[in-house]
Design a protein around this nucleic acid. Sequence first.
RNA 1: CGGGGUGUGGCGCAGUUUGGUAGCGCACCUGGUUUGGGACCAGGGGGUCGCAGGUUCGAAUCCUGUCGCCCCGACCA
Length: 567
Amino acid sequence: MLLSKLLGERFKEKPAEAFMASHIFMLRGGYVRQVSNGIFSLLPPAVKVSQKIEKIIREEMDAIDGQEVLFPVVLPAELWQESGRFDSVGSELVRFKDRNGRDMVLGMTHEEAAVHLARGEAHSYSRYPFVIYQIQTKFRDEPRARGGLIRVREFTMKDAYSFHTSQEDLEEYYQRAMEAYYRIFERAGLSKVISIQSDSGMMGGRIAHEFMYLSDGGEDTIVYCQGCDYKSNMEVAVSNIRKEEAQEEEIREVHTPGVMDIEALAEFLNREKSRTLKAAAFFRRDNEKPVLVFLRGDLQVNETKLRKILGTEAFPLTEHDGVDLCFGYIGPYNLNAENIEIIYDRSLEGESNLACGANKTDYHLTGLNVSRDMKIDRFVDVAKVNEGDACVHCGSPLKVSRGIEIGNIFQLGTYYSGSMGMQYLDEKGKLQTPTMGCYGIGVGRLLACIIEDNHDEYGPIWPKAVAPWLIHICVLNQSQPEVWGLASELYETLKKDWEVLLDDRGESAGVQFADADLLGAPVRIILSKRNVSGGQVEIVTRDKKIKKLVPIDEIRQAVEELLSQVK
RNA sequence: CGGGGUGUGGCGCAGUUUGGUAGCGCACCUGGUUUGGGACCAGGGGGUCGCAGGUUCGAAUCCUGUCGCCCCGACCA
């Protein structure tokens, strides 16, 4: 490729809207252009990287018996009605009518399409197990796109669906898929990827893992143990919380004017937040009834856990009208709990000498002893794990960090196959419902994470497995016939074996180097009057760790050597 | 959907307070000089200032409405 013909302006200033390294470099380097919120066009360099990522994914999916298929982007609503998701999924599912008034949707994931295809083709147990996958565009009308390609509305995804005749077989395949995922990320040059237990969310099913690229810019919070293998999404993370002994006191009412939250209460009473009791109010989506969650003051409600306990979605109660609660001073003692659902977190079990709201404006209670003063049938776990809590498996302190989800795998069970009437005949001629797994990887997100993981202050440092070009030739004195002659000759020769980008623009050295940094080819060859006249060229790696002068007739060998040395 | 910010050429911005008919740097085009980390000289092209109304002799600037984009939150296979 001649750089003078490459479509895509590169610029040196950081676009105002970009904050993450991947986003900044993809804009500055001419990789992507935003078309609308969360919707991007890809330019040639990004397409080339994507294609290489996809190639790796295809190879690894084929290696675990995947068969590539292609589902449509537009699907009839009936399929989604069969599974029940037409109604259960929110407005991130784009719905529209075709010219005949038929309800249609844009595929945001393809379980329905997969079952639709598979149920017509796999009537006999002898077909099983089988796995189908596709690499295709998804559209999700996300409430909020952000971070360049990290969170978008339209994106390319590899999604796979496996079908099994037993849970054991599914589990065995699930394990193979997990291993394949690790190989994919490693081959794509991404370190720092871990798999963690996750919530299965709207997918249904039980066991699920997410593959997280650890990054401070990530949107997910990950809890992991330093002492054992425990790793989990905060949404489903569990821990043994710290308990402290507190001496018993009598309940007393304290005048606390203007003290409306735990922060203020702890300060006002000069005590640790863990010696207070917090009330969090929510409303149920299904019947709008208020829900009160009581938990120790140093903890926070985990809304995913709450949703599971309630069996429905719950939203923080921000509109206080018509709710008979004394906001800012809500406490469990002497609470008029008519028409209110109350949930006690297990952090309260056995606690004593807590400070809590008195259900009376400007008053709190101190000395609350949970077992003495209250009658509680059931304690549940609805709190977020705090860093430093003890691991439930080994007791070591837990750590909390941020991550970007680049892939996930689910054991779906028969959620879709059952609701959509997929059946096969087993060995005995009996009808059975297959059990399923599904497996996703976001290609664009993976691309962004590769940059996050491999860049310096000047641009991406592409791992050779996904680099848009492997060799970038800079020509510093193009006007010199000797230099340009060698450059063209080298370009013609090298491009027979590698993808080569030749800077034929005659720009000054600084411009050429800056652009080469943004395009990130692993190996750079620099030709100039100075070195060519001495019968040599300079050859450097993008990460700038290796830099050497080599005789012209040894270039090929030197390129091979350098390529073998870089990641 | 709530809160905040912002919209002026491809990119980054000034001008808006106090209305007078649009400017700077980068990028782009032409010619020349240059060439080892974003060169220099000269000339040039490109913006109805997000959009729609209104006020005014006159609006990028004031008023009303509306839309886009960004950030935080809610949400998220």
